[in-house]
Simulated assay, not measured.
Amino acid sequence: MGIKHLFKQTSGWLYLNSSVGRNQLHGAGVILMLHRVLSNDRAADLPHRNELCVGPKAFDHLLGWLTRHFDCVPLMDILQPTQRPSKRPKVALTFDDGWRDNAMNAFPLLLKHQVPASIFLSSDFIGSRQRFWWESISETLWGTHGEEPRMHLIECLQQAGRPLPGLLDNADADRRSLALLRFVQSLKTLTADELNRLTDECPTDSMPQALDWQQVRALENSGLVRFGPHGASHAILTGLDDCTLAQEIRRSRDALQNGCNRPLPVYCYPNGDNDARVRQQVADHDFPFALGTTTGIYRGDSEPLALPRFGVSQRVARNPQLLSWRIYRGARA
Rank of each mutant, 00 (worst) to 15 (best):
L79E: 05
L219V: 14
L323F: 12
N271C: 07
G292R: 05
T293Y: 12
L16D: 04
A306S: 09
R279A: 05
N196E: 08
R217S: 09
F132C: 12
G223C: 12
N40Q: 10
Q215M: 04
G223T: 14
R129D: 14
S118W: 08
V20S: 06
C53P: 12
A43E: 08
R197N: 07
H35C: 04
L180I: 09
W13M: 10
R253L: 10
D174W: 02
Q159G: 02
Q24E: 14
L62M: 07
R150C: 05
P56Y: 09
R332S: 04
N258W: 06
A276D: 14
H26M: 14
K90I: 03
W213A: 01
S186N: 04
G12P: 02
A210M: 06
T10Q: 11
L178K: 00
A331M: 11
N319E: 13
P320D: 14
R332Y: 11
P81L: 06
P165K: 02
R131V: 15
E135T: 13
D254G: 00
R251G: 00
A58E: 14
G64I: 11
L121T: 09
I236D: 00
R22S: 03
P149Y: 06
G311H: 05
P203T: 02
R329N: 02
S18T: 13
F95T: 06
D242T: 14
D174K: 02
R315Q: 15
G272K: 11
A246P: 08
A173W: 04
G330W: 12
K188V: 10
R129W: 10
I126E: 00
S39A: 12
L322D: 15
F287A: 07
I119F: 04
D96A: 08
W142R: 11
H5Y: 10
G330D: 14
W13G: 08
A255F: 08
D301Q: 02
H113G: 04
K4S: 11
D242E: 15
I154L: 07
I3C: 02
S136T: 12
D241S: 03
S18P: 01
L211H: 08
K4N: 14
T189E: 14
A58F: 09
R277T: 13
M207A: 07
P203Y: 03
C268L: 01
R49A: 03
D96N: 06
